[in-house]
Design a protein around this nucleic acid. Structure first.
Lengths: 348, 348
DNA sequence: CTGAAAGCGCTTACAG
DNA sequence: CTGAAAGCGCTTACAG
C-alpha cells in the first residue's frame, strides 16, 4: 500500500514537525524555527528563507504550541478571567481586548459558574498552562491573593485593587452620585438597593458612592433596604418579591440595582405584582446594557464604557508582555447617567 | 545570604518541578509522575505514595501543563468555539458543559467577533494547543471543513451537520412550526422575517421551518420580507427601520426574528417609530432569553433548552475523550413556543 | 549565516 | 515496585 511518490503526497494525519520541514528544505530545525518565528533578520540567508517558506506551505506546517511553549517557558495564550460571562456588557469588553491584543496572542476565556471566580485549584491549573498574560475582570481581593500570578497581569474594573496589579477602572462612583442626585431631585426620599451578591469591589463602590451621595441629599436607605442576589433576572425578581411588601409599607419609591440585570428582575416582578413603573416605583441600574433601551419602561442606568475598558486593558497587558514599562499603573474611564422612563415618574 | 535551613524554606518564585519533588521524597521522577496522576494502582508502594504526597504538598507542586501535554501528546484543555458569546442563552449552555465535563478538563472559550467563527489560521493555532476535545456551537459547514479536527469533537446546535461529527441538536423546526401556527390562528396573513446574517445552519432551519408551515397555513412572506442582520439589538433596529415603511404598505402585521436579540431591536425601533406592539405589529423570536419576560411587551419566543444542550454535549465529548463509544451519534432536544404579549394583539 | 546539541518538564515503555 | 532513559517538538545560546 506504500506509494512510491512520497513527495507528492499531501500532508496526512500525522503531525507535521519542524524536522520534516527541515528535511524537505535541506536545512536544520534551528533555521526552520527562526523562519517560522520571523527572527531571520541577519540570521538566515534569503535563499534559505524562501526554501523554508516553501516547505512550510507545501507541508502545511504549523509551529506546535506545546513544544514551543515548553522551549520558551511561556505560551502565547492570554487568559481572561471573569465572573459573569453571560453579561452582554462583557461581550463588548472582549471585543476591545481582542482589538488591542492582536493576532499573535490567543485569547481564551476562563469559564466558571456565573458570579464565581475559579478556585485556587483551578487557578493553579490555569497557571500551569504558562499563559503569556492574564486579564482579570471585576475581581475581589481574595481571588487576587490566590492568584499570585508570575505572568503579566492586568485588572479590569477593580477599584481599590491597583495595589495588586496594573488596572483599568471605571469611574462608577461619579455615575452613582449622578444617579443619587437625579433621584433626589425627582423627589424620592425613601430608596432601596438591590446589590450583587459577589463580594466584588466594583459593586461595593457602586453601592457606597450611591449611599453617600443619597444620604447627603436627604434620601434614606435603611439597613433592611439593602438586599443582594446573584446577577440573574430570576434571582433578583424573587428577592424583590420578598422584600417589596416591607419596603412598600416604609414608603419606598425607588429601587437602585447594582446591575441592569438585577433591574430587569425588579421590572419583571413589578409587572407581576402590578406595581406601576415609574409611577409607584422608580427603578435604575448600572451598565446600560443594550436591553435597557427596550425594557418596559426604558431603564435608567449608569452607562459604563465597555469597549474602551477592554481596549485599554489589552494595551496595558501587551506592553507588559513585551517587557515595556507602563505609563500609568491605573487608568480610569468615565461613567455617566442615562435617564430613561423607569425613573421619570416623580416629576410628572 | 544562603540559609542553612534549606528544608524549612517555603516554595519560592522558582517553578517547582517533579525533579524537586522526587529529590525531596527520595524517589524518581517517574514515581512522582505516577503519584501526581493517580496511576499508582499496583505500581507504587504505599510508603512511596505518602512520601511523594507529602513532598507535593510541602512544595506546592503542580504538574506543569505544558510538559505534561508534550509528553502525553494531548493537553487537558477543552476548547469551546462559539460565534456569539454575548448571547445570554450561551451562558446556560456553558453551565451545562461545565457540569458534565467535570474538573479534570479545563474549559476555555475561544473568543471571536460577535457572529464570527475563528479563521483557518486561528483554528490552526487553536489546534496547536493540542486540545483534549473540541465543542463547537452553531457552526456552519465552511468552518467545519477548515477545522478537520484530529481531536474528539462534538457539535452543538448544528442541524444537518451530524455528518461532520457527533451532534447535540435542538428541534428548532417544531418550535418554528408552532410559531407559524400561532400566528396563523391569530389571523396574520402578511408576515416578515428578520434573519441572522451568519450562515449558520440553525438559523436557516428556523427560517425554513417557519416559512414552510406559514405558507401551508396561508401566510405570505414575500422575498423582500426577509432581511438579515448581525445578532445585535442596534443592527436589527436599524434594519427594521429601513424595511418597515415598505412592509407597512404591504400590510405586514407580524415580524418573526431569528433570535430574541433581533426581536429586541424590532421592539426598540417600533417604539421609536410609534408602531404599537402588538396592536399594529406582532413580534416573536427564538431562544426565550431571560429578558424576553421583561421586554415591552413580553416577547413571544421559541424556548430552547440551553442547559441540557451543554450538558449532553459535554457528556458526549467526555465519552469520546475517554475512548468510549457513543450510544447515539445525534441527540435532539425539544423546543416549544412560549406565547407572551408581543403576539397577543390580533385576537383581541 | 549555519547546524549540532542542550534543555524546557513531563510520561511511558522498558529492564530489572 | 522502582528508576534510568528515551522521547514529546521546539528554541536558543554556542561554536564555527
Amino acid at each position: 500500500m506504500e506509494s512510491a511518490e512520497q513527495v507528492q503526497q499531501p500532508a496526512r494525519s500525522r503531525r507535521i514537525t519542524a524536522a520534516m520541514v527541515a528535511a524537505r528544505a535541506g536545512v536544520s530545525t534551528a533555521t526552520v524555527s527562526l523562519v517560522a518565528n520571523g527572527k531571520t533578520a541577519g540570521r538566515v540567508s534569503e535563499d534559505n528563507i524562501s526554501r523554508v517558506r516553501d516547505a512550510i506551505s507545501e507541508l502545511g506546517y504549523v509551529v506546535d504550541g506545546i513544544g514551543s511553549s515548553l522551549a520558551k517557558g511561556v505560551s502565547s495564550i492570554v487568559i481572561l478571567v471573569a465572573p459573569d460571562i453571560s453579561n452582554p456588557f462583557f461581550a463588548k469588553v472582549i471585543a476591545g481586548v481582542r482589538e488591542s491584543l492582536g493576532s499573535q496572542y490567543q485569547l481564551l476565556l476562563s469559564v466558571t459558574e456565573a458570579g464565581e471566580f475559579p478556585e485556587a485549584d483551578d487557578v493553579r491549573r490555569l497557571m500551569s498552562l504558562r499563559p503569556a498574560g492574564l486579564l482579570v475582570d471585576a475581581p475581589n481581593a481574595g481571588f487576587l491573593e490566590d492568584l499570585a500570578s508570575p505572568s503579566p497581569l492586568v485588572l479590569l474594573d477593580a477599584p481599590g485593587l491597583a495595589g495588586y496589579a496594573p488596572s483599568v477602572n471605571l469611574d462608577v462612583a461619579s455615575g452613582a452620585r449622578e444617579l443619587a442626585a437625579h433621584l433626589a431631585s425627582a423627589g424620592h426620599r425613601e430608596v432601596a438597593y438591590v446589590d450583587s451578591v459577589t463580594g466584588t469591589e466594583t459593586f461595593a463602590l457602586r453601592r457606597e458612592a450611591f449611599l453617600d451621595e443619597a444620604t447627603a441629599r436627604g434620601i434614606s436607605v435603611g439597613t433592611g433596604r439593602i438586599i443582594s442576589t446573584t446577577i440573574d433576572v430570576g434571582a433578583a425578581a424573587s428577592a424583590f418579591a420578598d422584600a417589596w411588601p416591607g419596603w412598600q409599607r416604609e414608603g419606598v419609591t425607588a429601587v437602585v440595582c447594582g446591575t441592569d440585570t438585577h433591574a430587569y428582575g425588579v421590572l419583571q416582578e413589578a409587572r407581576v405584582a402590578g406595581v406601576r413603573i415609574p409611577e409607584e416605583l422608580a427603578v435604575a441600574g448600572f451598565d446600560d446594557l443594550p436591553y435597557s433601551a427596550t425594557s418596559n419602561p426604558g431603564l435608567t442606568s449608569v452607562h459604563l464604557p465597555a469597549t474602551p475598558l477592554g481596549l485599554r486593558a489589552g494595551e496595558q497587558l501587551r506592553r507588559l508582555m513585551e517587557g515595556k514599562p507602563l505609563e500609568q499603573n491605573e487608568v480610569t474611564l468615565e461613567s455617566s447617567l442615562v435617564v430613561r422612563g423607569s425613573t421619570a415618574a416623580a416629576e410628572r
